[in-house]
Design a protein around this nucleic acid. Sequence first.
DNA 1: AAATATACTTTGCAATACAAGGTACTGAAA
DNA 2: TTTCAGTACCTTGTATTGCAAAGTATATTT
Lengths: 116, 116
Amino acid sequence: MNTENAKSQMRKGMLEYCILLLLHKGPAYASDIIQQLKEAQLIVVEGTLYPLLTRLKNDRLLKYEWQESTQGPPRKYYALTLDGEEFLRHLDSAWNELTNTVSILRNGIATEPTLS
Amino acid sequence: MNTENAKSQMRKGMLEYCILLLLHKGPAYASDIIQQLKEAQLIVVEGTLYPLLTRLKNDRLLKYEWQESTQGPPRKYYALTLDGEEFLRHLDSAWNELTNTVSILRNGIATEPTLS
DNA sequence: AAATATACTTTGCAATACAAGGTACTGAAA
DNA sequence: TTTCAGTACCTTGTATTGCAAAGTATATTT
């Protein structure tokens, strides 16, 4: 059992939430998303992201538009659909419940959340 | 895409953390754990818990002792090993990073964490 | 003895993160 | 023109894990 695997498992499901959160602020294409997640301390690779974006699109939570780039091939800019916005609110609730659960279970643990 | 599945995915990995958090407070057997998790708003079923406990034991993060019950068959009381305590601290860090990531991405989202 | 309750276990399936490798388009250098 | 490098998108195979469902074993009650 290594820590990396545990962290990877922890991120399951969270990643979907994080991507919807990110796209809620505005459209972005894959490299954009990877970069912004990295700035939020979440490392994601292409092989994870592309299938996820495709799945969310097929589920009508995301839509995309092709847009030309001044440097390189055209890009798929993804954005939330109305269904996606609604689904995001459900995930907000689920996230709140989870953090609530952890804070209940953490009682007695001497570990404060770090701020950096 | 249904919300239940998304929530289930979100819990992946979290569950391991929650169980270690819980056992950090003291030994417990399976039904205990399910009950305490339910009180912390996390529904878990036997088919999920038992294989997880076995895995954590095989990884030397948990140990157990048989203990007689006044009512029914004997129970396996699980407790953290020293390795388990150390691993829990790693998971604390991972959890802190995740909540930090989400709070960064949530900027601009008009959803406050609920307190109940 | 049979039935019920409690506790532990196993099997099979679906979902998903990830590594690794591949395709396609663009523009610049040789 | 051809070649190369950079950017962007996509696919395949694997391991892990939550869960439903069914099974096994022990103890108590009827």
